[in-house]
């Protein structure tokens, strides 16, 4: 008789799996628990119990299925298992953001080829994010109060100082910076329209720096520069780590993008350029706030994030920023959708 023919076993599995929100994870847990029960029953039957008694004993000794299921669900939840979706959504968001601010009509600006490249890179980024499963914990917390860091550590937490670290992260960030400066210089001397100018700078910024920094940050995590987020929260540790990497990569990118926009427009329409620059800086912070808002918070200290988000951590006592995050996110998305559909 198979174990799953026993109603007690089925009840245990159903109760346990009901608490695990991710279906894929629940299936894995179910198989593991079933394997465990098989082992437990085999041992008990060897020691002389009948199969039925062995099953009852194994089920009783397993513990509370709902408690165990709840604990397992805390370790891994469904949202945390979707880095692919997160990565794609984020990059679609950035792409739309860019075209909305620097372009006129979305259909005019977006070429299928450009989108294809973006999506392929998005896919690579998201697949890289899957590597988070192999990330290792290390000696320092990713989410730490800024005051807990020494002055040197605070300085180091800013991504561009990684240039000085002689490792792959420093190299990738360095390449990203070189690529950006190179394309920006090229754009400056390119006697072409402002649109091409900005687009060139943007491409350098986007492909060079975003991926340079992102890869660098991910690598830094694997190098244990940074430890996992403390405590599984809304998104779980792994997703938090991925998002934190994105925050740390994106915040400076958006500021640089804003500056490039500012420089590129200044000769033509100074007031528009300043406005766009300010909007981009604002967007950088809003975007950071959105992702900070998604980080798990178990204590007030968790509001502090290392890296460029140290700026935000200074505001960690400002509950307004934190509570306003969903609102900011909703407003941002609404603005983008309105502009895109107009």
């Amino acid at each position: 008789m198979k174990l799953t023919d026993y109603p007690e076993v089925n009840k245990l599995l159903a109760e346990l799996c009901a608490k695990v929100r991710s279906k894929r994870y629940a299936a894995d847990v179910r198989n593991e628990v079933l394997a465990h029960l098989n082992d437990a029953v085999s041992e008990r039957t060897r020691s002389g119990l009948t199969e039925r008694d062995a099953v009852l004993s194994a089920v009783a000794d397993f513990g509370s299925p709902s408690d165990i299921g709840r604990d397992l669900n805390r370790v891994r939840n469904r949202l945390a298992e979707l880095p692919l979706i997160w990565g794609l959504l984020l990059l679609i968001f950035i792409t739309l953001n860019h075209y909305t601010f620097f372009g006129g009509h979305i259909g005019q600006m977006v070429e299928p080829k450009a989108f294809t490249i973006t999506f392929v890179l998005a896919l690579i980024g998201a697949l890289l994010a899957r590597r988070q499963m192999a990330w290792r914990s290390a000696a320092r917390s990713l989410i730490v109060p800024a005051r807990a860091l020494s002055r040197r550590e605070r300085v180091r937490a800013w991504f561009f100082f990684e240039l000085f670290s002689r490792n792959i992260e420093g190299l990738s960030v360095g390449l990203g910076v070189v690529a950006t400066i190179g394309t920006a210089v090229h754009a400056y001397f390119e006697p072409n329209t402002v649109g091409v100018w900005v687009a060139t700078a943007w491409m350098g910024c986007f492909y060079g720096l975003v991926f340079g920094v992102l890869l660098g940050r991910m690598h830094a995590m694997s190098l244990r520069h940074i430890r996992q987020a403390n405590g599984a929260g809304f998104l779980g540790r792994r997703a938090s780590r991925m998002l934190s990497a994105l925050i740390q990569g994106l915040a400076p990118i958006l500021v640089i993008q804003a500056l490039i926009g500012l420089i590129s427009h200044v000769e033509v329409h100074a007031h528009e350029a300043i406005l766009q620059g300010l909007m981009m800086i604002g967007y950088g912070f809003i975007l950071s706030a959105i992702f900070v808002g998604l980080l798990p918070v178990e204590s007030e200290q968790d509001l502090a994030v290392s890296g460029p988000s140290v700026v935000l951590s200074r505001l960690r006592h400002s509950a307004l920023l934190y509570r306003a995050t969903p609102l900011l996110a909703a407003i941002s998305v609404t603005i983008i959708l309105l502009v895109v559909w107009r």
Partner: peptide, 19 residues
């Protein structure tokens, strides 16, 4: 002698931490 099932959340947590 913990309840047998209680080790799994701990094992999975250690796994997610990369330990």
């Amino acid at each position: 002698q913990p309840k047998e099932g209680t080790i799994y959340p701990i094992l999975h947590e250690l796994e997610s931490e990369g330990a």
